[in-house]
Amino acid sequence: MAWIGRLTAVAMAGGGVLAGCLGLVSGALPVDVGVGRRTRPLGPQAVDIAASRDVVFDVVARPYLGRTPRSMRAKVNVLERGSDLVLAEHFTPIAGGRLTATTVETVRFTRPERIDFRLVRGPVPQVTESFVLTETGSAGTRLVYEGLLGTDLWRLGEWWGTAVAVRWEDTVASSLAVIKAEAERRTGRQ
């Protein structure tokens, strides 16, 4: 009968490890121990948009500063809204859509040239990002995304940061494509 106790202990430990992994991946169990911090760049990613800088800024800011459109509610939930700063949850499907990663970020708006994001809770302890909008010729805008991602625990954290960064940058690239399409649709130039 002692083997039943050992089997139960192993099963519980395995379940705890699985729960911890799921919590880390989904952002529900953030790990920020402040030891062995390593950082890596995110981006840069740039997209040229055939729309004015004000239009592009409004497309990015609308779900945060205004009423979140129904089409965006599965991706963004604003928890606290100010005039130029919001606290928002972002939802990203992972594991083939079987799980959802939730990050909580502050988003600061400096009209019309800059939007800054700072991670509060997520799968890594540190992320800062920016969208910088510059005017280009003939009423166009270049949107440049750059960021910094930090993880703890030396090489293990560095490995985890690389895995997270790939998915993070893919998500940003998708967002940039949506921003470009919407801004150009609003200006009538696709």
Rank of each mutant, 00 (worst) to 15 (best):
M1Q: 11
W3Y: 10
L7N: 09
V25G: 04
S26I: 00
A28K: 09
P30F: 03
D32G: 12
D32T: 09
V33S: 12
V35T: 14
G36F: 07
R37I: 13
L42H: 09
G43N: 05
Q45A: 12
V47I: 15
A50P: 00
R53I: 11
D54L: 06
V55Y: 00
V56R: 06
F57E: 00
D58L: 02
D58V: 02
V59G: 04
V59A: 03
A61E: 06
A61H: 05
P63C: 02
P63T: 02
P63L: 01
T68G: 01
R70D: 13
S71N: 12
A74R: 15
A74P: 02
N77K: 15
E80K: 14
R81C: 04
L85R: 15
V86G: 00
V86D: 00
A88W: 01
P93W: 04
P93H: 04
I94P: 05
G96W: 09
R98E: 08
L99M: 09
T100F: 05
A101S: 13
T102L: 11
T103G: 08
V107D: 04
P112N: 00
E113W: 12
D116V: 11
F117C: 06
R121H: 03
P125K: 04
Q126C: 06
T128D: 13
S130M: 08
S130R: 11
T134F: 01
T136N: 09
G137D: 11
A139F: 10
A139T: 13
R142L: 09
E146C: 05
G147L: 08
L148P: 06
L149P: 03
T151E: 02
W159I: 13
W160Q: 07
W160M: 00
G161S: 04
A163Y: 14
V164R: 10
A165N: 11
V166Q: 12
D170K: 14
T171E: 12
L176I: 10
L176A: 12
A183R: 06
R189M: 01
